[in-house]
Write a protein that binds this DNA or RNA. Structure first.
Length: 654
DNA sequence: TATTAGACTTGATACAATCGAA
DNA sequence: TTCGATTGTATCAAGTCTAATA
């Protein structure tokens, strides 16, 4: 788990350096391309790309190849590269087909059900548990839960009061009455023998021979082949999470009141299976039954169960490369593109609404301004005491913002400081328009710090309003829209045509980073960060020394040539000059790398790349500059974005 | 209309696999 | 070939939003 660092991530006002989508910056969007046709219609696709696609419409016929898993591509150094490539080419292009119009998600669904966690394997007798200094043999159920705790001994979790309290309470439920009467104080429990045993086990796993490792790998592959795929409407599709979550201790993030509780083992009796009636139903393990087998094609999941910590439902669903996920993803970006067309209107409107006579409308308008300008999340209400205390826009409280009429040469500054999703801190100090500022003062009047800032607003009211402004518009569309438009703008701004590929990729990363900062996607600085920076610096220093040495040599060679004027010395000068040039380039590359890494210290690029950036923007950029798409997307990402890679041309505009 | 269950996306992180320098 | 660093993948928690229910 990560601690929310006190270090301000977004403390500098100059972070508002132009790429924040403020209303002013986007005044131009109206006159940009008019692509009425490229709009995504939920029922029928009609993008330009698609029209093209339609022309070469691919008539799909069921064929063995198609329901074969993409197995060969999994093999690392292609035992059969050619075949892998061939299969790649033959991959089903679902985006060239019509979508269903009746709200059903599939017509046929067949799968083998989930893979269960292995049963508990009791500890060898020589591994002891001690209570109050005395050795004690635990019953199997109590021992299993004890192992969960013992495995986490090195983790900060086990030092936290709530974690320990919750764990102990749930552990006691698993004990026999005899154990229960004996074990009454967690502080008297000694799990260290168990802890060392598990450490040794994991060490041994690392030390396994190649053959043993290979064997495990093959077994995993076999399970993947058997359970990792389903057949949905004639196509073999990869399942995302076909393994049931094993039992363990709940690791809530932030100050979670339920951390340490026992996540119980899921049995077949807990599982609801979803598949089509006319499919081969998955068989429950010997001697067990499913909770239910249903045939609901209005949903996408293959299996579900209710988890015991929050009582929420968990699902087994398909991989992001699947048709069902891809269509939805595509649709998401098309909705964001529709927002692009009317965002000016919406902005004008909410600015008008800041002046409304009605408090609820003013609150709605200010909240929407934050969602738009700062890419805040909607902020649903949460049940108190059930989860960590985190907020989003609509659930902001008075204590989360501070108002400064004037600070550091800026007027009307709002300082945000709150914990958002996953208890990640959002800190930002930003000047706003006078009207927003005055409204905020008004909203805060006569309120306690723990009162809601927007007391007349919630996500449902906000989204209802947004729905009226544009079909399909919700708060999160703004995040998608602003992320994607920022990427597009930044790429335009940062890419220099005369730069080489690494420099262009740095530009791409910087554009990506601008989005990650906007969306506040943080990461804990890698444990090895300082060290790896140091290593890099050492390399840079060395390179610099090399460079000055090379320059000296060049100078000497020049002097030599000046004196002798012969061919040999001329050649030497050339050689030395080239050497200097090469070293300069290497140095620059290292420096670029250092910059990139430093800038990325606490920024995570992955989330925005995967969830917020219209992949067609990136693909178009690659095509425009002749950059292999592999430099931007790894294999998994290419599978997820296959639709975009196939359809986006270099002139694609978000 | 308000509440809650349900379905699905988004998110950080732990761990495994791979890479590249020594 | 080994080992530490880097990258990729799996995991599962925590959001958003919709639809069902009271």
């Amino acid at each position: 788990m990560r601690e929310t660092s006190p270090a301000a991530i977004k403390s500098e006002p100059e972070e508002d350096n132009g790429f924040y989508p403020s209303p002013q910056h986007n005044k131009t969007s109206k006159r940009e391309h008019d692509d009425e046709d490229s709009e995504y219609k939920p029922k029928k696709v009609k993008t330009e790309q698609d029209k093209k696609a339609k022309k070469r419409k691919y008539e799909y016929e069921e064929d063995e190849e198609d329901i074969k898993p993409k197995k060969k591509t999994k093999d690392k150094k292609g035992t059969d590269g050619k075949k892998g490539k061939k299969e790649e080419e033959e991959k089903w292009k679902w985006w060239e087909e019509e979508r269903s119009t009746d709200g059903s998600k599939w017509r046929f669904l067949e799968h083998k059900g989930p893979v269960f966690a292995p049963p508990y394997d009791p500890l060898p007798d020589k591994i002891k548990f001690y209570y109050d200094g005395k050795q004690m043999k635990l019953s199997a159920p109590a021992e299993e839960v004890a192992t969960f705790f013992s495995k986490m001994l090195d983790h900060e979790y086990t030092t936290k009061d709530i974690f320990r309290k919750n764990f102990f309470k749930d552990w006691r439920k698993e004990m026999t009455s005899e154990e229960k009467s004996k074990i009454t104080d967690l502080n008297k429990c000694n799990f260290s023998d168990m802890n060392e045993y598990f450490k040794a086990q994991s060490e041994a796993r690392k030390q396994m021979s190649k053959e043993e490792k290979q064997k495990i790998k093959e077994e995993n592959e076999r399970i993947l082949q058997e359970y990792g795929f389903c057949i949905m409407d004639n196509h073999k599709e990869r399942i995302g999470n076909f393994r049931i979550e094993p039992p363990g201790l709940f690791r809530g993030r932030g100050d979670h009141p339920k951390m340490g509780m026992l996540k119980r083992r899921i049995r077949p009796e807990d599982i609801i299976i979803n598949c089509s009636k006319d499919s081969k139903h998955p068989k429950p393990p010997q001697g067990t039954k499913w909770k239910e087998v249903r045939h609901d094609n209005k949903v996408t999941w293959l299996a579900s169960w209710t988890e015991n910590i929050q009582g929420s439902i968990k699902y087994i669903m398909l991989n992001p490369s699947s048709r069902i996920k891809g269509e939805k993803d595509w649709q998401k970006y098309e909705t964001a593109r529709r927002l692009k067309k009317c965002v000016d209107r919406i902005r004008t409107q909410y600015r008008e609404d800041w002046k409304s006579k009605e408090m609820r409308i003013r609150q709605r308008a200010v909240a929407l301004y934050f969602i738009d300008k700062l890419a805040l999340r909607a902020g649903n209400e949460k049940e108190e005491g059930e989860t960590a205390d985190t907020v989003g826009c609509c659930s902001l409280r008075v204590e989360h913002i501070k108002l400064y009429p004037k600070i550091d040469d800026q007027e009307y500054v709002v300082e945000f400081d709150f914990l958002g999703k996953d208890s990640i801190r959002y800190y930002n100090k930003i000047p706003v328009e006078k009207r927003v500022f005055k409204n905020l003062q008004l909203f805060m009047e006569n309120k306690q710090p723990e009162d809601d800032l927007f007391d007349r607003l919630n996500t449902s009211i906000l989204n209802k309003h947004l729905q009226e402004l544009m079909d399909g518009l919700t708060a999160k569309v703004f995040r998608t829209y602003n992320a994607s438009i920022t990427l597009q703008q930044q790429l335009k701004q940062l890419t220099c045509s005369d730069e080489n590929i690494p420099a262009k990729i740095l530009s791409y990363n910087r554009a990506n980073r601008a989005v990650a900062i906007l969306c506040n996607h943080q990461r804990a600085p890698p444990k090895t960060f300082e060290k790896s920076m140091q290593n890099l610096q050492t390399k840079i220093d060395e390179k610099q020394n090399q460079l000055s040495a090379a320059r000296k040599q060049l100078k000497a060679a020049k002097a030599d040539h000046k004196a002798s004027h012969d061919d040999k010395s001329k050649k030497t000068v050339e050689v030395k000059r080239k050497a200097v040039q090469r070293i300069e380039e290497q140095l620059m590359k290292l420096q670029v790398q250092a910059t990139d890494r430093e800038e990325n210290k606490q920024i995570a690029l992955g989330t925005s790349k995967l969830n917020y950036l219209d992949p067609r923007i990136s693909v178009a950029w690659c095509k425009k500059w002749g950059i292999p798409v592999e430099k931007i997307y790894n294999k998994t990402q290419r599978e997820k974005f296959a639709w975009a890679i196939d359809m986006a041309e270099k002139d694609y505009e978000f």
